[in-house]
Amino acid sequence: MRRAEIRRNWLLATPALILLLAAASGPLLIAVVYSVLEPGDYSGVVWKLSGEGWFRVLFNRDIFDDTVSLADAHLTIFWRSASLSLMTTFFTLLLGFPTAYFIATRPLRQRMLWLFLVTIPFWTNLLIRTFAIMEVIRNEGIANSTLMALGLIDAPIQMLYTDASVLAGMVYVYLPLMVLPLYASLDRLDFRLVEAAYDLYASRIAVLRRVIIPLVKPGIVAGSILVFIPSLGAYVTPRVLGGGKNMMISNLIELQFGEGRNWPLGAALSITLLAFVMVALIFYVRNMAGEQRNG
């Protein structure tokens, strides 16, 4: 490419770059700075350097005798965030793979219709969809009243405000993000290779394990990342379906900036979340680079 052309392309990208830089690095910088200041009495920060915010991410200091203990509540929330996100990824993959395979093996004209159907949930606001789920699974909701009307249960089952309801909600919300990249990969898959594998004595399971999965791995990894990262930072779903006690990291962060009135801790938690995401992304990038090397 000629130098003038390169310069022109940079120029074209400049507005977007400035926006990204300002919108991403600005708040990030603020978060970093706030995380090392002291909390103000009613909110905000006091401009005095302190490591307390970071300290409180993992530890508690007793208000009376200053004894230090592990912040169990935080660790539980971290663990719940990580495990719920991993489980969400796992279940979306489990449900999304057959769906994507089904779509990719339809005649071309039908595929567009199926893909369109997959994207329909995006048309409605996440909050509304989440409240809709709540309406279905709450104690007086459709699911429980139907089961009771059928005489299958005597008392409503507690479905809402459990880890399971959060998981179900997240699987529902993020499923399309898994299906779409998986479909893109399966769509590129040369089904003649599947035929060749059958010809070479591979059973159905062997074909899936030895040919299809290795070939659509980029789609599996992309879908997993697309689901795992927003799951980790999920706010609405655990807030609505998990109630107050089944918090995830985002809810904890919100708590610190709100009722908790501990902005430095909230900022430090945000950066912790960011670190989790970075780890996931590094895994992704390395995996992709590996794929590229292998052709």
């Binding site: 290779l193 059958y198 010809d199």
Partner: peptide, 20 residues
């Protein structure tokens, strides 16, 4: 019989070699 139960192998027009 399905293809994987037949002692018959094919050389495909597209070769269909496994790229991975």
């Amino acid at each position: 019989l399905p293809p994987y139960r037949r002692p018959v192998n094919t050389v495909f027009q597209s070769y269909a070699l496994f790229p991975h």
